[in-house]
Write a protein that binds this DNA or RNA. Structure first.
Length: 253
DNA sequence: CGTATTTGACCGGCGC
DNA sequence: GCGCCGGTCAAATACG
């Protein structure tokens, strides 16, 4: 499976560009969610407090400029194709470094901003993981009105924090098989949630990728998975035949 | 017995 | 400065 985990770069033309444009870009990626998760397709966005972004056919043009609220039916499930995956992700995240490739092709939505790393961990952490934060006046980092103090704090944290993103998945299983091996190193009960948050580290030597997993308080059927950092290796279940496919590793910088 | 998980302690950031 | 909270550590425990 030489093509595993390779992002369809034709849809991410400025993949190498570190300066984000302020556009919303559609793309596809192949993930290796295994067969038993095929009915647990991730479809969330990186910020659970913001509207879930609706998938837009990649052929459509200008209407892509605005995130649209996702249509949900009365069962609070997606009314669109369940095979759609919607993820707002930081521009410099290589999706394939967190997901290996596989038979399932999911649609993702990449939100690109005018400055690098605007999806700072702080923003994701406060907005996505901790719904109590950011309530004083609703100051939003994504707008130019951000205070200098706040920006300073964020910058300070950016120094040490890896890029991260998270998404929601409808799943009975907490830990989705993303092809990598993880070791649990902590569990925490987060305030105002009934479900604990679990912390995992990639077991690969020198790979510092972390992920955390928790259930959405509002809907325990949803698993929120947050990845931080980039894998420096291919998914572990490729290891057996990875000797002959070192070129594949270049996709997992 | 080696490895993975659990879980209370600890630490640092942040708000008040 | 203090307390709260999230994230991490590491000893204890479980597991294969």
């Amino acid at each position: 499976m030489a093509s595993q985990g390779i992002l369809n770069q034709s849809l991410f033309e400025d993949h190498q560009d570190h300066h984000m444009s302020s556009s919303i870009q559609m793309g596809f990626f192949s993930s290796n969610f295994p067969q038993n998760y095929s009915n647990n397709i991730p479809y969330g966005c990186s910020n659970i407090n913001q509207p879930i972004l609706r998938t837009i056919p990649s052929s459509s043009s200008d209407e892509q400029q605005q995130p649209l609220p996702y249509n949900t039916n009365n069962n609070n499930t997606l009314s669109q194709s369940s095979s759609s995956t919607l993820i707002k992700l930081q521009k410099d995240i290589d999706f394939t470094s967190n997901f290996g490739g596989g038979p399932y092709q999911h649609q993702i939505l990449s939100l690109q901003r005018s400055s690098p790393n605007l999806w700072s961990w702080g923003e994701v952490n406060y907005d996505c993981m901790s719904s109590k934060r950011n309530t004083n006046g609703g100051e939003n980092i994504s707008h130019l009105g951000i205070s200098a103090i706040k920006m300073k704090k964020i910058k300070a944290r950016r120094k040490v924090r890896e890029p991260r993103f998270c998404f929601k998945t409808l799943s009975d299983v907490d830990v989705l098989d993303d092809g990598y091996k993880w070791r649990k190193y902590g569990q925490k009960v987060v305030k105002n949630t009934q479900h604990p948050r679990s912390y995992y580290r990639c077991t690969q030597d020198n790979c510092r990728v972390k992920k955390r997993v928790e259930r959405l308080a509002e809907d325990p059927r949803m698993v929120i998975t947050t990845y931080e950092g980039r894998h420096i290796h291919s998914p572990s279940h490729d290891e057996e035949d990875s000797q002959a496919s070192s070129q594949v590793n270049s996709y997992f910088w």
